[in-house]
Design a protein around this nucleic acid. Structure first.
Length: 328
DNA sequence: CGACTGTA
DNA sequence: TACAGTCGG
């Protein structure tokens, strides 16, 4: 879920129009999870094809990506790579929660309680290898590039923005700030009016709370991240106050915390020098209409007219950036 | 979630 | 044109 920074970070409101002509590095896992949990029927079951394969994520990627492109924005999806060993606990906890939710889902379904069933079905969403693979396949057929991160996708996205390959990272997670993403967009959706996007600029955020990124990372370590538990009783506001006056090490001493699970420096390294993939290229291609139709319509039962309409919207991409490099 | 349809 | 409701797969 990422670090809980909502209480100390203020976002600016921006418009999709403000992203026109810009490349946005989309946190794929974050986005896929939203599609998977959000695109469901009333009883909580996801969209599925005739063979019972889940297709909610495909629907989400297809329509949102097409609309984003239609608005002149250039999306690059960034997929997570290896899971950090420090994240094992979090991963295990999530798995347990999913399992519990799944059990309650079955119970609610058997009892005919649709609202309960839906709630627990959503909670049991999981990004299986099938979800990841089918998503990448769809992006390929759409001509939309994706980058495979070495570790965390947010860290990869942050690097891409710093490197000038993308203008901002799109993710719901505040972790992007910790990884040093200069610009972050939250709520990159089409619904909810036109000023629903949240924009965060790392420099502005740091200036406002009067902290360095290193200090912000230390606040996160107290609050708790996907990589460590944090200190019980310390939320974002308290953490911020504390770190303004003392170093994390001093705070630990003051609180009488002697044996930490993991040394702060090890955790700091995760956010401050995350291993990234520097060998990627971002190339927007024209959609492969035939493969796209074969995959989406024949294999997964999507409406041909809708898929063709998407293919039409995608033309906007190949036409905007052609002229130069496509000749070489 | 986003597309599409119906209603005013 | 704006939005509420439902469908999509």
């Amino acid at each position: 879920m990422g670090v809980k920074f909502k209480d100390i970070v203020t976002a600016e409101e921006i418009n999709l129009k403000d992203l026109e002509g810009r490349t946005v590095a989309i946190d794929a896992y974050n986005t896929l999870y939203q599609f998977l949990s959000g695109i469901r029927q009333r009883d909580g079951s996801p969209l599925m094809d005739a063979n019972g394969n889940v297709t909610s994520h495909l629907s989400g990627i297809l329509y949102r990506t097409a609309s984003i492109v239609d608005k002149g924005i250039k999306p690059v999806y960034v997929f997570d790579g290896d899971v950090s060993e420090y994240k094992t606990k979090t991963v295990e906890k999530r798995r347990a929660l999913r399992e519990e939710a799944n059990q309650k889902y079955e119970e609610a379904k058997a009892a005919g309680n649709i609202e309960e069933a839906r709630k627990y079905a959503i909670r049991s969403s999981r990004l299986s290898p099938y979800i990841i693979e089918s998503s990448k396949k769809l992006l390929e057929y759409m001509g939309i590039p994706y980058v495979q991160a070495k570790g965390e996708g947010e860290a990869q996205g942050a690097y891409m923005v710093k490197n000038g390959d993308a203008w901002a990272v799109a993710s719901q997670d505040y972790d992007c700030l910790l990884f040093g993403a200069p610009r972050i967009i939250r709520n990159l959706t089409l619904s909810g009016g036109l000023s629903n996007l949240e924009y965060l600029e790392l420099d502005k955020v740091l200036t406002e709370i009067d902290l360095s990124r290193e200090q912000l990372v230390d606040v996160a370590l107290m609050v708790g991240t996907d990589f460590n538990e944090g200190i019980y009783g310390i939320g974002a506001k308290t953490g911020l106050k504390l770190i303004r006056q003392n170093s994390l090490e001093d705070i630990l001493v003051q609180k009488g915390i002697t044996d930490v699970e993991v040394e702060p420096d090890e955790l700091r390294e995760i956010f401050l020098s995350h291993d990234v993939n520097t060998d990627y290229k971002i190339k927007f291609k024209s959609a492969d209409k035939e493969k796209l139709c074969e995959f989406m319509c024949e294999e997964h039962g999507f409406s041909e007219t809708r898929v063709l309409n998407v293919a039409d919207k995608l033309k906007k991409l190949s036409s905007t950036q052609k002229s130069l490099e496509d000749w070489f």
